[in-house]
């Protein structure tokens, strides 16, 4: 199995995640796009770990997944909080501070 193909897939997914951040205006979806980027990273790491036969890549993935969980907790809390105040989670509406 060639690592190359996995890396290519990972780059594609990463780019799609980036596009998601830029395209979507719903804060939750923006956030999900970031998760997609992290997933792409995970794929690259596992592929490299396979190629190198070293465990460090797997460990890294483990840490990323868990950190993502922590991020999600805080991120969703933020979104809920701002929804309560503003009744909108459209990030284009975040323009209280100008210029």
């Amino acid at each position: 199995m060639q690592t190359e193909w996995f890396i290519l897939l990972s780059v594609i997914l990463f780019t799609m995640g980036v596009l998601g951040v830029l395209f979507r205006r719903n804060a939750i979806l923006v956030f999900m796009s970031v998760e997609l980027m992290l997933n792409a990273t995970n794929l690259a790491l596992v592929a490299f770990a396979h190629q190198w036969g070293s465990e460090a890549g797997h460990l890294f993935v483990f840490f990323i997944i868990t950190v993502a969980a922590a991020e999600v907790a805080v991120g969703l809390a933020l979104i809920v909080a701002i929804f309560r105040t503003k009744h909108s989670i459209n990030i284009d509406d975040l323009r209280q501070m100008e210029g």
Binding site: V21, A44, L45, Q51, W52, F60, E71, I79
Partner: peptide
């Protein structure tokens, strides 16, 4: 304040994703 937090968070998470992807490539 909430906006400040959310902006920081979204962009921070975005930037962290780049950081880990870079780390993955270095690991590779």
């Amino acid at each position: 304040s909430e906006e400040s937090g959310l902006k920081y968070f979204i962009l921070g998470a975005f930037a962290s994703a780049f950081f880990v992807y870079g780390a993955a490539l270095v690991y590779g």
